[in-house]
Amino acid sequence: MAEEPISTRLHDRIRRDFPDHGDAKGIEGALRVLAVELEYSRQSTERLLAAAVVIADGDVNRFRSAIRLARTDWRDLLVAGGLGHADWPQVLDEELRPR
């Protein structure tokens, strides 16, 4: 993966949900690793990574659970994050809009 997998709007959501700088950096590091691990899925990287952040809702332990879920089955991650249906682009836009 040559380019940065974390979009600007996802980065903003992470900073909003995880105001502690150390937590946010750790979340972003884990997401970069996950992006590489899930390249085979051929899904939108932003969609996959955002699903983990949405599931976490600012809780580091829930984020860790979301990462485990992603590694088990990325499709379950998308469903749990509300991004597993045909309307996922609209849901993603809503989840990542500035607040």
Rank of each mutant, 00 (worst) to 15 (best):
G81T: 14
R42F: 04
H85C: 08
A56E: 05
E37Q: 12
Y40C: 06
G84E: 04
P89S: 15
P19A: 05
A52S: 15
L34F: 08
V33S: 09
Q43S: 13
P19N: 06
E94R: 12
N61W: 07
S41N: 10
G29L: 08
L10S: 00
R15H: 11
D12W: 01
L34C: 10
R64H: 13
T45S: 03
E94H: 12
I6T: 01
D17A: 15
V60C: 07
S41P: 05
R13G: 05
R9S: 02
R42L: 05
L34R: 06
R9P: 00
S65D: 10
R62H: 09
E28P: 02
E95N: 09
V60E: 12
L69V: 08
H21I: 15
A80C: 04
V91R: 15
P98H: 14
L49G: 11
D59Y: 00
N61I: 12
L10I: 03
V36N: 00
D73Y: 10
W88Y: 12
S44H: 02
T8H: 08
A35M: 02
E94A: 11
R47D: 03
D12K: 08
D20N: 10
S7F: 03
R47V: 03
A50P: 09
A50L: 07
L96I: 08
F18N: 02
Q90G: 12
E3R: 10
R75S: 12
V53Q: 05
R42G: 03
R64Y: 14
D73G: 06
A70Q: 08
V79H: 07
S44P: 01
V53K: 10
D93C: 02
E46G: 05
L31G: 05
S41M: 11
V54Q: 01
G22N: 12
D87A: 14
T72S: 14
S44T: 04
R15M: 15
G26P: 06
R99D: 14
G82Q: 08
V53G: 07
P19G: 01
D17N: 14
G22A: 12
R13Q: 15
R62Q: 14
L92A: 01
E4G: 08
A56F: 01
D23W: 10
H11T: 11
A56G: 09
P98C: 13
R97H: 13
D76S: 05
L83M: 09
D12P: 00
M1H: 09
P89V: 15
